[in-house]
């Protein structure tokens, strides 16, 4: 069998997904046997121009991680889509926008202000912020354009498979690779993960909750046996796709929601919100308000990984550039 051509790429990402590929440990050697790596910015040297030079659909498998935050992300996503037979959205950022997607609670200007100007630690006396084009005596310099809104990979190009997770668990990644190599392809659009929400595979005991207050994780020592939500700490398990092996809850950490919404969900955030708010243990509007306000950042909590694929996608835009 001819060796497969494999591309790995990162958009707006932290690099964790690449590391999870390396976390395949000795299986990574197998990848080396099975495939030629045609692109992998983290680990190999090929350039964009090498890819551009290829015939369309010459790459057998492209693992694309990271969200689409700027014009470079978009350009390469489109390029890799053209050149790849199978495009896999790897990790929560590619699948749902992920943590960078929370940038959608702000706009470009606010983000630039915060990153380059407003912080005490910014030593930026000339108040310089990145621009897509600058003219210097030597000529014109360009940078990718930073978008106002983060998108998931699927929102910009056609995607064949999804492997969620922040980072995606190596066993799911390997499962996907095996399926592709063996030609045993799942139906297009499949999410390589569980079908039900995480609670299904969570080993913790539950009785039906009554939320008396919202506590932060740092403020409690969680009982290891009992449902975390029942202990007053927000756990995203009820509205988050399972299949992760419930690693967080087994490590006594609440589910953060990295596997994203379950199949055909209306909206991960509002549905989780409703599930939790409905069980607030009070019938008194003022008390309810008080309990509610203990949750400092509902959007960041309920949409932690999925804001760009939520119903509203982002905060309202106020006609900004």
């Amino acid at each position: 069998m001819a060796k497969l051509k494999l591309a790995v790429y990162w958009g707006a990402a932290c690099g964790g997904c690449d590391v999870s590929i390396l976390d395949l440990h000795e299986k990574i050697l197998k990848i080396g046997e099975l495939a030629d790596i045609v692109l992998w910015p983290l680990a190999a040297d090929p350039k964009y121009s090498d890819i551009e030079a290829m015939e369309d659909k010459t790459i057998d498998l492209c693992l694309f991680n990271g969200a689409v935050r700027n014009s470079e992300n978009l350009e390469i996503a489109e390029l890799l889509r053209r050149k790849s037979k199978i495009l896999v959205s790897l990790g929560s950022c590619a699948c749902f926008g992920g943590i960078p997607g929370l940038g959608n609670l702000f706009n470009k200007k606010e983000i630039f202000n915060s990153v380059y100007l407003d912080r005490e630690f910014n030593a930026n006396e000339e108040q310089i912020v990145p621009k897509a084009k600058v003219t210097v005596p030597e000529g014109e310099l360009t940078l990718p354009e930073f978008y106002n809104t983060v998108s998931s990979l699927e929102q910009v190009v056609d995607v064949d498979y999804f492997i969620p997770g922040c980072p995606p668990p190596p066993d799911l990644l390997w499962k996907a690779i095996e399926a592709i190599v063996s030609g045993n392809l799942p139906p297009k659009g499949s999410v390589i993960a569980g079908d039900k929400a995480l609670c299904h595979e969570c080993p913790r005991k539950r009785e039906g909750r009554k939320v008396k207050e919202f506590k932060r994780l740092v403020d409690v020592i969680l009982d290891e046996e009992i449902c975390i939500l029942e202990q007053g700490v927000v756990c995203n398990g009820p509205a988050t796709r399972g299949g992760c092996g419930a690693r967080c809850v087994r490590a006594n950490i609440p589910c953060r929601g990295c596997f994203g919404p379950i199949e055909d969900a209306l909206d991960q955030g509002t549905q989780l919100l409703s599930a939790i708010a409905s069980t607030i243990d009070s019938d008194n509007p003022e008390e309810i308000k008080k309990i509610t306000d203990q949750l400092a950042d509902p959007a960041g909590t309920f949409y932690r990984f999925s804001l760009p694929v939520s119903m509203l996608k982002r905060r309202k835009e106020e006609g900004e550039e």
């Binding site: 609670c199 299904h200 539950r206 039906g208 939500l229 398990g237 009820p238 399972g242 599930a275 939790i276």
Partner: peptide, 21 residues
């Protein structure tokens, strides 16, 4: 049943105790 993950969000809120587990 094939969608329900057993999170028990619904059990305590039915005014008629109609939701069992």
């Amino acid at each position: 049943a094939s969608r329900c993950s057993g999170c028990m969000s619904c059990v305590n809120i039915c005014p008629y105790g109609a939701v069992g587990f």
